[in-house]
Design a protein around this nucleic acid. Structure first.
Lengths: 200, 200
DNA sequence: TCCATAACGGAACGTTCCGTTTCGTTTTGT
DNA sequence: ACAAAACGAAACGGAACGTTCCGTTATGGA
């Protein structure tokens, strides 16, 4: 049943009294493959270990726990989606969102991200790392879009946090319910609302 | 270490050839207590079983798996937050959100909900149940707020789905990152944007 | 050149958990 | 009186986590 794609059981011997970067790379690639094929349910350290042809102690030499590995898997996938402000916040957000969803949908990243969020719900350390390190880093770009709009006077500076939360949550809802395909039509509408000027 | 609060190890004997509703109630209460005290990390069927003084087979006689139990725990806690439209969508949403957050914060419900969402990420059946049964039921009220606003002509009917997604995601973001306290200030701003008329 | 050092893969460990099975007991309904 | 079914308890098989041990491999300092 679990074919396990015995594709790459290539083992790497010790290269002496120092850690082998090839092992790290192989583990990262194996983790990505397991997540892509099995999803979060099938993502286990044992499975990654088997797939990578690496011992579990080697995994724990590079990452302190499963959440740590998950975060680096995502980081390695990130494909650096660039968000460059054009002067129209709604259009910038729409474009960025489409890119993000395509990234989540077309790569293992969506599954990785969902796994990350799930893991954080049962591991306080993982949640703290997510909130204080992972998310801020990941949101630099889109935060920049809002900042640029505020600098233009299109939106009030003090509303950036609320609008950013709306933006993040919107994406989370669709990825966590596995509706990235069906929900596409909602993107332009939602982004127009998030980017609306505060004139009432 | 795990004090386990041996408070209520009251066992219930068989009452004959039919299931004992007292067992169901005891299990539900135990599940709620375990979630409240240990969070998702400590929520195990074994822990619930011990806490309830019930055998695991009894649990599985009433619920088909852990996700099923989680959903009923949340349903039992729901406290039926009523949302009655007053004619001002932004105000209605703000009020409803404050109630929801207070509910999540002041009861074990927030933790239960987070556990539910996490569980759905590793169990396809749970995700399907969440998306097609749990969420629609839970969103009847707030969907009614949007429908009423659309009936008044305040928002376009075809934008209900996108605005609802914004609303849901906004709440999910704060509960999943455990920021229900710090995020309160963003509520009125976000709700005004979600409820904005479509005049540009 | 020797050799302590440390990483390597692999195997096994102890623990925890899920969901199931087995067992003896208790009570019902027939 | 007795079959039926639920009860709590215990144990099971399987999987997973994170750790420990093993024999092997190669480095780099003395």
């Amino acid at each position: 049943m679990k074919a396990e794609k015995a594709a790459t059981p290539i083992r790497r011997a010790s290269i002496g009294a120092r850690r082998n970067p090839a092992s790290q790379a192989a583990i990262l690639a194996a983790a990505r493959a397991v997540l892509a094929e099995q999803g979060y349910a099938g993502f286990s350290i044992d499975a990654v270990s088997r797939r990578a042809g690496a011992g579990k102690p080697t995994i724990y030499r590079w990452w302190k726990n499963r959440a740590d590995l998950l975060m680096e898997v995502y980081a390695a996938e990130k494909a650096r989606i660039r968000a460059v402000p054009t002067g129209d916040l709604a259009r910038d957000l729409t474009e960025h969102t489409k890119q993000l969803w395509a990234f989540w949908w077309g790569t293992p990243s969506g599954r990785t991200f969902r796994a990350l969020l799930a893991e954080a719900q049962s591991d306080p350390d993982a949640l703290a790392a997510l909130r204080e390190k992972f998310l801020p880093e990941r949101l630099l770009d889109v935060r920049g879009l809002f900042a640029a709009a505020a600098a233009r006077g299109d939106i009030p500076t003090e509303e950036i946090e609320a609008r950013l939360a709306l933006y993040i949550g919107f994406n989370w809802f669709y990825v966590l319910t596995d509706q990235l395909e069906a929900g596409q039509a909602a993107i332009p509408v939602a982004m127009r609302l998030i980017a609306a000027s505060s004139r009432s």
